[in-house]
Design a protein around this nucleic acid. Structure first.
Length: 293
DNA sequence: CGGCTTTGACCTGCGC
DNA sequence: GCGCAGGTCAAAGCCG
């Protein structure tokens, strides 16, 4: 398991279209502007902000070659449906994943586990029945790598950290976050690459069933604090749907999720996806299981 | 006081 | 079956 940083090369994909950096390379941040990737993230309900242009980082030789052509800065990595082939891929990301399509039971796994872990005596075994002969079901995941000084990139949602673990073969711990929305079961994992400490690997699991919370508390501020002096202060770098963009010097690249049918995406059920961007079937099809769309 | 982080312990899955 | 490593829980503490 020495390839912890490489969850699953086989599942990797890189953007074939171009990424767009902010107007100036000086800008301290960049956004997804590529329509396709943008739509991918939108599909997941993400508004992602990266705080610093991340250089392309290769996960495997092939990818590196492909990536050399990218003007890009952020890499999305497909994890869902990944075959644990090398599975040494302790990357843990996919090594245990079977992704039997998104099942609502996943969200119910959590409460179940609470009865069984933490040293609590299994008073009510019935709550763990599902674990008999059933593998843990995971939601689709995708990961991206960003060069950033801050571990926790703001994406418009609020997260609560619920765990941190040391990762084998990596000097950096892995942090586990959960969406603070009680009905939202989305999780995210953040870790730094052991090969390049500047690279932050963020892995999302699941889909948000609600809008962003607007400005995350102090999110941008915290980013600001870590920006190099030569960088442009990220004064207006966080955008979310509906937010008025600054008149002057509008960012040329902004992640703008299309309005999500929130009403149709209640949390207690598997969100029925409304194909908002049907044109990107190819890539979306790669990430989002048919059942989710 | 509520929300969040920290952290050690426990559980689960997987490879050998 | 055993051991390892990832993932999660939950109590305690911190902070605004």
């Amino acid at each position: 398991m020495d390839d912890t940083e490489n969850p699953d090369p086989g599942a990797k994909f890189t953007s074939e279209s171009s990424w767009t950096l902010g107007p100036d390379s000086d800008r301290a941040n960049c956004f997804f502007s590529n329509h396709r990737e943008n739509s991918i993230l939108s599909e997941f309900g993400w508004n992602l902000q990266s705080d610093e242009p991340a250089r392309f980082m290769d996960l495997d030789p092939v990818a590196a070659e492909e990536g050399s052509d990218l003007a890009g800065n952020i890499e999305i990595q497909r994890l869902q449906g990944a075959s644990p082939a090398g599975s040494g891929g302790g990357g843990a990301d996919v090594s245990t994943s079977n992704y039997p399509s998104v099942s609502s039971s996943s969200s119910e796994d959590q409460p179940d586990k609470s009865t069984g872990s933490g040293g609590k005596p299994p008073e009510i075994p019935s709550t763990k029945v599902k674990q008999k002969g059933q593998k843990r079901i995971r939601q689709p995941r995708f990961a991206f790598m960003t060069k950033s000084e801050v571990d926790h990139l703001e994406d418009g949602y609020r997260w609560r950290k619920y765990g941190q673990k040391a990762v084998k073969n990596s000097p950096f711990p892995r942090s586990y976050y959960r969406c603070t929305n009680s009905k939202c079961t989305v999780k995210k994992r953040v870790e730094r690459s052991s090969e390049d400490p500047a690279i932050v690997i963020t892995t999302y699991e699941g889909q948000h069933c609600h809008h962003t919370v607007g400005f995350p508390r102090g999110g941008i501020i915290s980013h600001e604090a870590t920006f190099a002096s030569h960088m442009t202060p990220p004064t207006s770098q966080f955008y979310y749907p509906g937010m008025q963009l600054p008149r002057e010097n509008p960012p040329s690249t902004v992640v703008q999720s299309p309005p999500l049918p929130v009403g149709a995406r209640e949390c207690n059920t598997v969100p029925t996806r409304t194909p908002q961007l049907p044109t990107d079937e190819g890539l979306l099809g790669d990430i989002v299981p048919p059942g989710m769309r």
